[in-house]
């Protein structure tokens, strides 16, 4: 564990001497502000409209969580798909390019310690991003009364989804010594896992009729992170969803470990 902390600490600090971290954090903060304002104005508009037309039912259904916090977190999730690969692209690729992998692999460290350390550093960075995003829903508590549990569940969702993507990005980074390739491979994997699979499910369902298609479709839907994230931002905390994220992180870290280990045999 001491080793994990040493590696994670070094890696985390190294984020903040590279311009990438600042570009990512700046974009993230600006987009968070923009999306928050736009969802806020949209919400206000809809409340005004509903009031004007005396749609009491609709007005009664509206609340800060479903109409504001959830769409906002959904938008931030979408931004994350594109920004996290930039955070993780250097995790292993950089060491291979620097030759520092030779230092790590000849030190009394296990490969798991190296992988966990790298993952923890990037997950820590993702946590900073989640904390920045959390600031905006936090503001609502000052002016209104959003549901605490629902808001926290949504933030938990954003955090878990980011950790899963960090694991995917770490795996992409372990495959190459070129950061650009690591970024692109990571982005593609994250897009497929996060967004594309539901589309593939739709295509599978449009074929219809075949019982196997349903089974595959169901499986694909389960594999997609979006499906589980939606549960969490709507305030449902289900152990099955939590287990999904643990499994996703575990699978990609295991793959990363296998790739790092295999470099000894080449």
């Amino acid at each position: 564990m001491r080793h994990v902390a040493a590696i994670a600490g070094r890696e985390f600090r190294s984020f903040f001497v590279s311009p990438v971290a600042f570009v990512v954090l700046t974009l993230w903060s600006v987009l968070a502000g923009t999306f928050f304002l736009s969802t806020l104005f949209d919400f206000q508009q809809r409340v005004l409209l509903a009031q004007q037309f005396q749609q009491v039912d609709q007005l009664a259904q509206m609340n800060l969580n479903d109409s504001l916090v959830s769409p906002f977190l959904g938008a931030m999730w979408f931004v994350m798909l594109f920004l996290l690969p930039a955070v993780t692209m250097g995790l292993f690729a950089n060491d291979k390019a620097n030759g520092t992998d030779e230092l790590l692999l000849t030190s009394p460290l296990t490969v798991w310690e190296i992988v966990f350390g790298k993952f923890a550093a990037a997950a820590g960075f993702a946590l900073v991003m989640v904390a920045i995003a959390a600031f905006y829903p936090g503001l609502l508590f000052y002016f209104g009364e959003p549901d605490v549990g629902k808001t926290l569940a949504g933030l938990l969702g954003l955090m878990l989804v980011s950790f899963a993507y960090v694991a995917v990005g770490a795996f992409a980074s372990s495959l190459t010594q070129n950061q650009l390739i690591a970024f692109i491979v990571g982005l593609v994997l994250i897009l497929v896992m996060g967004v594309m699979l539901p589309f593939l499910v739709d295509i599978a369902f449009s074929g219809a009729g075949v019982p196997a298609a349903d089974a595959i479709g169901g499986l694909m839907r389960w594999v997609a992170t979006g499906y589980h994230f939606e549960h969490l931002i709507s305030g449902e905390i289900d152990t099955a969803d939590l287990a999904y994220f643990v499994v996703a992180i575990g699978v990609f870290l295991t793959l990363s470990k296998a790739v790092v280990e295999s470099s000894r045999w080449r």
Binding site: S14, N98, G99, T100, E102, L103, S107, P108
Partner: peptide, 28 residues
């Protein structure tokens, strides 16, 4: 073992002291 590979395995963004200290921590 202490090992100096053909090209020194350095992290260019770190200071000398921070780097040597990092190595000391992973070398137990």
């Amino acid at each position: 073992v202490g090992y100096l590979p053909e090209s020194p395995p350095l992290y260019p963004e770190m200071t000398v002291r921070a780097y040597v200290s990092f190595v000391a921590s992973i070398k137990d």
